[in-house]
């Protein structure tokens, strides 16, 4: 598989603060990657470094097997935080400028503006656009060079529900064409919906890196309750399939599984030992729970 980006032991310090700490991961062609982390976890700094706008402290990264970063960026499309354009120029003029920078023909402009539904507004100044339109213009600008990888940093931040929906539709549409995508977000369902791979960051440290489905791959957990909670607890503790037991707010017990076991067998085991359950649900963890689990271990 073709490697697009390799990051090795990347570190960035702002004075005493370490924004990114010893980060390594690889991006392969064709996958959709998510960088997940709370605000201030080093997502934007990492993207800033690989995009040549933030200077690294140590470590290194390599684009497309060793081309210079500035040449590589011509094969990359990227949007960082907010759409940045010249406010006094029209959509078309702004894209013309980007064409010159990326060295692609201006004929691409029409195609990409149509893709994001802004062709009718091509002669309007950027400053007259709504945030959703600005963000769509940014996406069309990032796509001008038909990039090998599209990098998006919080693309739906600050948008209204329609705007969020439009942007997600566009991202999914782009992913379907086989373009590699790197998406930084603190929104878990966003990552869960579009990404195949995920890197979880907290305070600049990598907590997880791998496939999304493997991250949430666990035996799941039971929500369970009975009249005699103490007997239930001791029975569960004695069975090898059950791990950590915790109380939820509603008084129901949460039991993490350490091996695969179905609800029928649990019910049978408890009944045979004299406990009758009044609540029994088997659940799979969502990415959100897994994420909170991962990040709470650290803090």
């Amino acid at each position: 598989m073709k490697t697009i980006l390799t990051i090795n032991n990347l570190t960035k310090k702002y004075g005493k603060l370490t924004a990114v700490s010893d980060l390594s991961f690889t991006i392969e062609k064709g996958n959709v990657y998510g960088i997940l982390g709370p605000n201030g976890s080093g997502k934007s700094t990492t993207l800033g470094i690989i995009l040549n706008v933030v200077n690294k402290t140590s470590g290194d990264f390599q684009w497309f097997n060793g081309t210079t970063t500035h040449q590589a960026l011509k094969k990359v499309g990227a949007i960082i935080e907010r759409p940045n354009f010249y406010p006094y120029m029209t959509a078309q003029e702004n894209l013309k400028l980007v064409c010159k920078i990326k060295e692609v023909p201006e004929s691409k402009i029409e195609e990409k503006l149509k893709l994001v539904g802004l062709w009718e507004r091509k002669n309007d100044k950027f400053k007259t656009f709504s945030l959703g339109m600005k963000q769509r213009l940014a996406i069309s600008s990032a796509l001008l060079n038909d990039p090998e990888i599209l990098i998006l940093d919080e693309p739906t931040n600050g948008l209204d529900p329609q705007g969020i929906h439009q942007i997600r539709e566009i991202i999914i549409q782009i992913a379907e064409t086989g373009t590699t995508i790197l998406l930084a977000s603190h929104l878990l369902d966003e990552v869960e919906k579009v990404c195949t791979h995920v890197v979880v960051l907290q305070k600049g440290i990598r907590l997880y890196s791998g496939r999304v489905d493997q991250m949430v791959a666990s035996y799941g957990y039971f929500e369970i309750n009975a009249e005699d909670q103490s007997k239930l607890t001791s029975l569960l503790n004695n069975h090898e399939a059950f791990g950590n037991i915790s109380h939820t707010k509603s008084g129901v017990l949460n039991v993490i599984l350490t091996q695969d076991i179905n609800a029928e067998d649990v019910n049978k085991y408890l009944f045979e030992n004299g406990v009758i359950v009044n609540h029994l649900v088997k659940k799979k963890e969502s990415l959100e729970e897994k994420f909170l689990q991962l990040t709470s271990q650290q803090s």
Binding site: L51, N52, V53, A78, R82, N84, F85
Partner: peptide, 10 residues
């Protein structure tokens, strides 16, 4: 922030 965007664009 167009300076930043120019650099990102290549």
């Amino acid at each position: 922030k167009t300076l930043k965007q120019n650099l990102i664009d290549g």
